[in-house]
Design a protein around this nucleic acid. Structure first.
Length: 500
RNA sequence: GGUCCGUUCGUCUAGGGGUUAGGACACGUCCCUUUCACGGAUGAAACACGGGUUCGAUUCCCGUACGGACUACCA
């Protein structure tokens, strides 16, 4: 019998959650729900210098907005509390000591400055410095010094780190769910720091220890972790633990050119990279969020899911539940995906049309009478990408036009259209039933009586009433404006056109 | 520089030893609509290159090119 599936999303609280991280969380969520597993949220805050106030809540709020909340961990609790690595500090020390005792790790006393100097020397020789089997004997560590020296140094309060003793000649291999077999020779892996001199573990140690303790079965994370995956395998081996199944996700790339999607690219492209608006507590700078831009959670989920994964069918629109049943690790792509905001907008339009008219009306046009607001939603829903455009549209619609689209006036303002508008101006007041259908037939009849072709007048009428040559259905618009308003606009426009 | 990963229309991708290489976004045209949008139809548009294996390669293998990630006491 196989173990129950457990996956985790383990971000660092160093700022707003990047959209790539959101996708990672989503894939974890989808797999967990698909296979009846558990989705865990763990906070990897082992770097105290990069900790940002509010980031953890931001992560939680983002997941909540998208409806992909964890089953266990931060915000919900669970059997492996605490889920914040800074609060598990003492635990990692125990495991680091275990590796020291078994000879799989060692103390190192080299300072950052000394190591930087080494790197500079190697670089000047055109090579790269590695803290490894070749160089460690010449550096200041418990492998190159006597036991007396070591205990003296430690007793004197000399800061130290704990490094993994990477075997000199071995091949590490593992089977990634997305990339199949990956093999790396240990000569290219250096003796990574496991415990920092401040007593905190590095990502590598904390990650492996926690994933093991929390019984994580599948590690689904970004491709940026692929190069250190062999190191993690080595750690599992050093502890004698069974490694989880790895799946390294392709990266989200910038829309133009190449490279990882960054906040800068997003600013350039005029779209967000963060799910929610984020105010940097240090600088006070505000970064926009998809939510505030008007993206619907369901559209975001659908769009993100398709960036690097697809169901293999021609269905494009998937609810979260449908994604859960269609999802599989095997159908994730290897290559990075460029972020295309056009596609995101298209998804948003699709989901916007599915929204409930009544609730859109109350939410985005709260100042209008319910029935009128709903009419506006009907009128504009097909012409907008984001719901808050409703307000702008209605505002434009309601305001008296002051300028008239020049090209149309130039082309269509002639004797016939002038006569047509005059006819309407004089006859419309007599129309009793002010509804789109009756307005339409009334206009038709009146123009016909006057011997004027409707086609010669309609666009001019549109410009006269709205100022624009294009827009929503004119008859429904007229109904919504009301008779009085229409006549007012008509008079204004005729006066303006005649002055030309 | 080194290690690892990748490469099908502009973009997201399906496919896979023999296909008219399929879909979606964006773009063009037409229809619908007395406008525009929506919707429908349709068009243009791709297997990075070179070798090998094979009757046959876009598909498998090897190189090359290009791109990316990593190369911290950051995650």
């Amino acid at each position: 019998m196989s173990k129950k599936l457990r996956v985790r999303f383990a971000p660092s609280p160093t700022g707003a959650l990047h959209i790539g991280g959101v996708r990672t969380a989503l894939y974890n969520y989808l797999l967990a729900h698909k296979l009846g597993g558990t989705f865990i949220l763990r906070i990897e805050d082992t770097d105290q210098t990069r900790f940002v106030e509010g980031a953890e809540n931001y992560i939680l709020d983002s997941l909540k907005w998208l409806g992909i909340m964890p089953d266990e961990g931060i915000g919900v609790g669970g059997p492996h509390e605490p889920y914040r690595q800074s609060e598990r500090k003492d635990l990692y020390k125990v495991y680091a000591d275990e590796l020291i005792n078994s000879g799989k790790a060692y103390y190192a006393f080299d300072t950052s400055e000394e190591l930087d100097a080494m790197r500079a020397i190697y670089e000047s020789k055109g090579s790269a410095f590695q803290y490894n089997a070749l160089t460690r004997v010449k550096l200041k560590n418990s492998l190159s010094m006597s036991e007396q020296e070591i205990s003296d140094l430690i007793a004197s309060g000399m800061p130290y780190v704990i490094r993994l003793k990477v075997p000199a000649k071995a091949e590490i291999r593992f089977q990634d769910s997305i990339r199949d077999w990956v093999h790396v020779h240990t000569s290219s892996i250096d003796d990574k720091v496991l415990m920092k001199s401040d007593g905190m573990p590095t990502y590598h140690l904390a990650n492996v220890v926690d994933d093991h303790i929390m019984e994580i079965t599948h590690v689904i994370r970004g491709e940026e972790w692929l190069p250190s995956a062999p190191l993690h395998i080595l750690l599992y081996q050093a502890f004698g633990w069974q490694p989880p199944q790895f799946a390294h996700l392709p990266l989200l790339l910038k829309p133009e050119g190449n490279g990882k999607l960054s906040k800068r690219d997003a600013d350039l492209g005029g779209f967000p990279v963060f799910p929610l608006e984020w105010k940097d507590p240090q600088t006070g700078a505000i970064s926009k969020g998809f939510k505030q831009e008007g993206y619907l959670p369901a559209a975001m989920i659908n769009f993100l899911a398709f960036l690097g994964w697809n169901p293999g069918t021609e269905q494009e629109l998937f609810s979260l539940d449908e994604l859960i049943s269609a999802f599989s690790l095997e159908r994730i792509n290897k290559a990075g995906a460029k972020f295309d905001v056009n596609k995101a907008k298209w998804f948003n339009e699709q989901y916007l049309k599915l929204q409930d008219v009544s609730s859109l009306a109350t939410q985005y046009l709260p100042d209008l009478p319910k029935k009128e607001a709903e009419s506006f939603v009907h009128l504009f829903l097909d012409r907008i990408t984001f719901p808050q455009e409703l307000g702008e549209k209605v505002k434009d619609f309601t305001e008296l036009p002051t300028i008239y689209e020049e090209a149309v006036v130039l082309n269509k303002w002639n004797e016939e259209s002038q006569k047509g508008l005059q006819v309407l101006k004089e006859s419309l007041p007599a129309l009793e039933l002010w509804e789109a259908d009756s307005i339409k037939s009334f206009i038709h009849i009146k123009l016909e009586e006057a011997g004027i072709k409707m086609g010669k007048v309609m666009q001019m009428l549109r410009v006269a009433l709205s100022g624009n040559g294009a827009g929503p259905d004119l008859m429904i618009s007229m109904e919504l404006w009301g008779k009085e308003q229409v006549l007012l606009r008509l008079n204004h426009a005729i006066a303006a056109f005649n002055k030309r």
